[in-house]
Design a protein around this nucleic acid. Structure first.
Lengths: 290, 290
DNA sequence: CGAACTGTTGATAACTATCAAGTGGCGTGG
DNA sequence: CCACGCCACTTGATAGTTATCAACAGTTCG
């Protein structure tokens, strides 16, 4: 069984004529501000000279690197189509996947502070990216004030995403992480107009594991388990979602129960205990026998 | 043994006269743009009307909440003195510590996107915070263009911090996390002009554990172990750093070895294997017998 | 001075990594 | 066109790290 949803290319015309050969010339090569805002899911900039400001597109093929760690920063990227990964590389050469940017996502932001990219971005499929030269962007801020706000908003969104990532890595079990990963992918695909129930993973088990702080074996086993209990169907990279709610609510008793003395340290009636919440399938056995 | 370094208050005058009672009236109540930039460790804004623009300070006492999750967002905060924590609270009421803001740190940024704070901020000591009303800040961007860049820079820095946090949670062992935590605290204190070799933790083991994705017991045990092998001295909240290098280089074989097929997927001579790096003390036993 | 919180330490269990072997897919080259 | 080799994935056995449960000591503060 194969899922033919969301191919790399715009794909709606069913990947017919645009093949590898002519790729470099395919697609739209320029976008204006309005399209850019729509893509980023932020209120359109009201400015007048919309049609004048054009932003160049660039295409990358599967496996190509968009930028590396330490490379001088000068431009931000917005994904128009395709799938990528951003990674950190530690002193031993090990990758740590940080995100999987896709349509509408912004990346490269981590280079602003030090003026050098802090991460590496690699195309997981053929990609069409919009270049947003930082200087140009800054200059634009002078005339289009809303654009400035928009950028704050996008960066803030990114920050919140990282926060929830930290929270997930810090508090959730392996099953819960994989479940949430699938759900968020599903939602992401829905937003992009693809099927949320049947899609292809663009990354390897290894990359997923790195992203979720797990080994590839654990990811594989968890997917198999979800498959067996009917939450999903798995066939290599093809994933079918069969019970979103189950995946969405799958959790585990958090390892750190920080509750108590939450507001002011001083006094408080007394025994205000942990909520100990209604249990969810916590162990493999429970999962398997569900 | 008690470390008297870095008390909550400006502290250099050895916490003499300014006691709890008069706190609300103590300290400086307003700061100008220049001071603000210095505090944030970003190039000073060159604007002219420096002295005109004043930003109000506000004081919070230990345990007080600065903002809660869901509360309408309207201002950013910069720490002038004191220590705080920011936390996420999940559906069961469990806290997840996200950061420990201290002097020079900005927080509240996560509220920009949704217009509501995404996290909760609590004072871990008496604090002096500078208010930065978002509207006012945006307005300022029109006249002080550099301020805009500065904010991008600070947000970018924050994003990079979160990234390294994710990387740490995803790839490092418990010992390594605690070691890095201590080192970064030490460095942070040094930046603030305090001793980097002897300091007091402002947070509980529980909060540290939540921050690092560990239980309080594991944190406690790890500190005890570091103490025994002479890397640090521990006495309750008082920490003495005795071998920064050991702490800094303490790592472990990363669980996910994503290396291989890094650049282009296609072809490549061949067997280009993992670097498998020179081993470091990996287990508790090794740690203990070092 | 006691209650409540914080921190320490031990015993045990659970989760997940590690090691290992085998299958299947896919691209490259014979 | 098929075979080979590499890579991704699956699955099993085992070990190790860290969570959990529990008891206790030290601290703080009213």
């Amino acid at each position: 069984m194969q899922a033919f949803e969301n191919r790399t290319e715009p794909a709606l015309p069913l990947r017919a004529t645009n093949l590898e050969a002519g790729w470099q010339r395919q697609g739209k090569l320029w976008s204006n501000l309005k399209e850019l805002c729509a893509l980023l899911r932020i209120p359109a900039v009201s400015g007048m000279a919309d049609e004048d400001l054009l932003f160049q597109h660039v295409q990358f093929k599967t496996g190509q690197r968009i930028h590396t760690i330490g490379q001088p920063f000068d431009t931000l990227y917005i994904v128009h189509s395709g799938f990528l990964k951003t990674v950190l590389i530690d002193e031993y050469g090990n990758e740590q996947v940080l995100s999987f940017p896709m349509k509408g996502d912004l990346f490269g932001v981590d280079g602003i502070h030090t003026r050098r990219y802090a991460s590496e971005a690699v195309a997981l499929s053929n990609c069409d990216l919009i270049l947003l030269p930082f200087k140009k962007f800054i200059a634009l801020g002078r005339t289009h004030i809303e654009l400035e706000q928009a950028m704050y908003s996008v960066m803030s969104r990114e920050l919140v995403r990282e926060q929830s990532m930290v929270s997930m890595l810090g508090a959730l079990s392996a099953e819960a992480r994989v479940a949430r990963f699938l759900v968020s992918l599903s939602e992401r695909f829905a937003e992009m107009g693809y099927s949320s129930r049947l899609f292809n993973l663009r990354m390897t088990r290894h990359e997923i594991g790195s992203y979720l702080g797990l080994t590839l074996e654990t990811v594989s086993r968890t997917l198999s388990a979800f498959n067996e209990i009917g939450y999903i169907t798995v066939d290599q990279k093809s994933i079918g979602i069969r019970d979103v709610e189950a995946l969405r609510t799958l959790r585990r008793l958090p390892p750190s129960t920080t509750r108590g003395r939450q507001t002011s340290r001083k006094a408080r009636p007394a025994a205000e205990d942990v909520i100990e919440a209604g249990a969810e399938p916590a162990t493999w056995d429970q999962l398997m026998s569900a």
